[in-house]
Write a protein that binds this DNA or RNA. Structure first.
Lengths: 214, 214
DNA sequence: TGCAAATATATACCAGGTGCAATTATCGTC
DNA sequence: GACGATAATTGCACCTGGTATATATTTGCA
């Protein structure tokens, strides 16, 4: 099953990793905007042209690390056991992510990860590039809902949009708190409570938003 | 109250409009990526340097037209009469937008508007720039909810994220349908139904998302 | 070993965007 | 109506991200 990849493939993987690591190290030390791709290429000992053969844009040197998570929600929904609603599966998955300090929940305080998040959050072009992942994550989740929950297309898209929006909000909130110094362990209980609150809101709707005082 | 603006101010407004109009005309005719800012500057009879004094980036030549809507939801929530929930106010506002064919609902089929939407939708860099407006729209709506609905901060942010996500989905859906030929009048009834469905979902939650068949 | 295909490279180039110093137009005042 | 202060505009040089082309190098495989 696991074909041993040839030398070519292995070398490509190594080059890919080497470029990205050189890039992130430089970016973290001097700032994303202060380092040019030429400098990254030099540090990684490849030509600028080669760098762009591996990464379509400067931002991807950083955000490619989030690429795997694009389809995560869709996978969770598809893989849920019989008798489980999509929302339940997603909530449990998110809570499990918190428990294991999965960086994608924003609650990992390893210094390098925290620094990376901080950089992404306050570098506009990086944040913008992340949004692309959000879009495709939304699309794939909508498909998963449509196919496994027998939901009309628009409903699936609306639900996916809401779910992704909520997860994103939770993650950003956690990441922002850790970025400003809180430890993961100190944050954990609050993060769990917030996540449960958020998923409950998603499940029960916004009916409880109060009327305007008369 | 309405101070007569000086010649300077009026001229600035005129220049701003002239540049944007020249830009959009060229973009619509030849495509956003096929026209350089230098060409736009030439057509508008200003220097490239001046163009960038009015618009921070090429994309803004187009998307600045959406800027007013950034704070629209927040304004609606703040201006709602006593005894009305935020969601009700927003739903009525959206439905009214459909009725009057407000372009921001995606249901205006004036050829220039339709062409503009189509261009924004399938030019990635334009779509990306639009997302920035979405973010600030979300933030301002969250503030409005927090202040006028006496809602905890996180709840306000979560609700805002969900609401904006849903409105965005509705608008994109309408715009996409019109972009592929449907007329506004033909779409109207469907758009109203979809909007009512979407706001109901928002209000009642996603509880109805079915469990996985056993 | 040797050859075809895939990668890497150097070089030159384009477009978006900025810093700077000089010019020109507008404003408020005398 | 003239005039200095202030703001807008301009041209120019420059930087950076990204691409085209043509060339060299490496790898896979017979």
């Amino acid at each position: 099953m696991t074909e041993q990849p040839g030398l070519r493939e292995r070398k490509k993987l190594r080059t890919h990793a080497a470029i990205s690591e050189a890039a992130i190290a430089l970016f973290l030390e001097h700032g994303f905007d202060q380092i040019s791709v030429a400098q990254v290429a030099e540090a990684a000992e490849v030509s600028k042209r080669t760098l762009f053969a591996y990464f379509p844009a400067k931002e991807d040197l950083v955000v490619h690390r989030f690429a795997d998570h694009e389809t995560e929600s869709a996978r969770v929904v598809r893989a849920r056991p019989a008798g489980v609603t999509p929302l339940t599966a997603l909530r449990e998955h998110f809570l499990e992510g918190l428990r294991v300090r999965d960086p994608i929940t924003g609650i990992n305080d390893r210094p390098d990860i925290r620094a990376l998040f901080r950089m992404v959050l306050d570098t506009p072009s990086l944040a913008a590039r992340l949004q692309r992942f959000r879009s495709t994550g939304e699309r794939t989740l909508a498909e998963a809902l449509r196919e496994t929950a027998d939901t009309p297309d628009l409903t699936a898209r609306l639900a996916a949009a809401q779910i992704v929006a909520v997860q994103w909000t939770l993650t950003l909130d956690n990441a922002a708190r850790l970025a400003s110094g809180e430890t993961a362990d100190a944050r954990y209980a609050g993060a769990v409570g917030d996540a449960e609150h958020a998923f409950a809101l998603l499940e029960n709707g916004l009916r409880e938003l109060p009327r305007r005082a008369g």
